[in-house]
Design a binder for these strands. Structure first.
Lengths: 337, 337
DNA sequence: TTGTAAGCGTTATCAA
DNA sequence: TTGATAACGCTTACAA
């Protein structure tokens, strides 16, 4: 038989389609053990699989979840995807992963497509501020949506965020504790709240020690290796600093490169601290000290909240705490300075 | 209105649902410009979106494609996903990405789920040999399927592969040309044909120069940073070699670490060449010489072949060629040796 | 314990 | 140029 339908199964088992449907949906009541077994046998034999289209048309559920990420190219996101996927599968959902390239048009397009695919919910790693049409799409479409990692609308929608301010503070405190005073910070795009908060926290640490803003050389990067490299090179050629806080690991990688080219030793002459703790940085030379966020868990949690929302209607937000991972790229300021 | 259906649109526009459907599906013929415009206006106003369930039930198409990857954790795969996604979107499909962890059970589970979700086709990065039940699932389900990157069943199914043998050869030739003779090769799991072929090609290059197998220290790794590190450390402590071919970039990263700990300079005392050209290796210190495969394009191509197969029934396979990217981690053997 | 039949929102066939 | 209507494969009241 080309494609078995519930009807074929019913006929072959000598029961009605209702009975087959009951078996399929694990409805325990109202059926003799005998009938159930017979049906199950036929289903197995035929390798029958229910058609989601027909099912969804009635139940209005696709068991599909959408995940929109800004760039899968940043090693930060694969981890997050894995966490999200694992949790989704555990709960019997599948994940449609979309890559918005951080562009509003693509994001909106995906939102539309996902809605059309009848996904049961969406996890959105968006720009800080949802574009009006994105927001409308979510609201009007009444699709449960969880914000992840980014976005200032966390109070309007359930969300999973990292406490970036504390992360920045941890980084600053660490450098200060090591005795550094001439410090530079290569930030992410300041239009993104995440980056901005990291800087705020970082500054708070410096201010606690009595350093004022003048002491902090702050320049704005864009979270890419290249920007880290370019900015650090420029910075190191013109200034005499002993430590750099790169607001993500990718930019820290760029700092490594710049320092190497200028023949500046890390951590001997320059301490470097990153942010994220993406998988490869523990294998760099020297191993990168960084602020860790548990991306895998954040992905998992986001899916958990989303499915809870879908199934029970309850919404909830969660904030994760970053932690300092001390490795080899930071060291105490040399005394002879 | 809670949720607009084609019926609501029809009523509001004062036409039949057939007409609305025609507009929706861009059927040009048989409609006055006036009617079309009226319908379009109503659709826009209502922000109406067709329901894929109902649509799929009739057309048997989901516009969904499945992509099963072994580990999204290897930076090799995100690139591939991006390529696949971009092409899919261009052709109006969405991509469901699944992570099999290289486990047959997970792969089979996903195959089943994807089939149940009625995906129109599947791109599979599988183990070399499809497990019997995976194969049955594909064959019996009659789902178009394209193999990517791995698998020896390339002649049975349409596939996109890299010419790994040539890649290995290129690596070997490069080291030989630089004057190296005491060379080691850290392979991937030899049960995977990809790894095996890289070694074969590599050896061919050595043999051409008259080196026999004795000269090649070959050890088997598992494509992780850790295995590269452990094996290289062991190797470098016990042997006097001047070059290492790591069969993927991640293991090359491990080699860097080991060499660093043993205070062996790259490329001064040891040349290292990798395989893949994952994004970050051009930012390592020193920048890694490697064999590049165009992962993004391979992902794109796989989707292209798959959609062609879905839409026209034509199957086709493609082989990609690797290329040598010379950077800083390889150098001529020192004369004084 | 089991079955009948309505209905989900589309597309497609055929008729007007 | 348009419109009724059957059909797609399933779930679910309701009936038996």
């Amino acid at each position: 038989m080309a494609k078995w339908t519930i009807k074929d199964i019913a006929k072959k088992a000598g029961v009605s389609i209702t009975t087959v449907s009951r078996v399929l949906n694990q409805k325990e009541e109202g059926m003799s053990e005998e009938t159930r077994e017979k049906v199950i046998r036929v289903i197995k034999e035929a390798q029958y699989q229910p058609n989601q289209f027909a099912r969804g048309l009635v139940t209005k559920q696709s068991k599909l979840l959408g995940l929109i990420v800004p760039t899968i190219a940043n090693p930060f996101f694969p981890e997050l995807c894995r966490g999200a996927e694992d949790e989704a599968n555990k709960r019997n959902y599948s994940l449609v992963i979309c890559n918005s390239d951080d562009k509003s048009e693509k994001e909106e397009r995906y939102l539309r497509v996902l809605k059309e695919q009848q996904v049961d919910g969406i996890i959105l790693l968006s720009k800080d501020r949802l574009s009006p049409s994105s927001e409308e799409l979510i609201k009007e479409g009444k699709i449960p949506c969880t914000l992840l990692d980014r976005g200032i609308e966390g109070n309007k929608y359930p969300a999973v965020f990292l406490d970036n301010e504390t992360g920045g503070y941890l980084a600053g405190k660490h450098l200060i504790d090591l005795g550094h005073r001439r410090i530079s910070c290569i930030t992410g795009p300041l239009s993104i709240r995440n980056s901005f908060e990291r800087v705020i926290g970082f500054r708070r640490a410096l201010e606690e020690t009595g350093l004022d803003h003048q002491d902090l050389l702050q320049i704005e990067g864009d979270f890419t290796i290249e920007s880290g490299y370019e900015l650090a090179k420029n910075l190191l050629m013109k200034n005499d600093i002993t430590a750099i806080f790169a607001c993500n690991d990718l930019m820290a990688l760029g700092v490594y490169q710049a320092a190497h080219e200028l023949n500046i030793k890390i951590p001997g002459e320059l301490s470097v601290i990153g942010f994220d703790d993406i998988p490869i940085v523990s294998s760099l030379i020297p191993k990168l000290t960084t602020i860790r966020q548990d991306t895998y868990e954040m992905g998992r949690k986001a899916v958990q909240l989303l499915i809870n929302q879908i199934e029970t209607g309850k919404t909830e937000s969660v904030q994760f705490s970053p932690s300092l991972i001390t490795r080899e790229s930071t060291a105490a300021r040399k005394i002879e300075e």
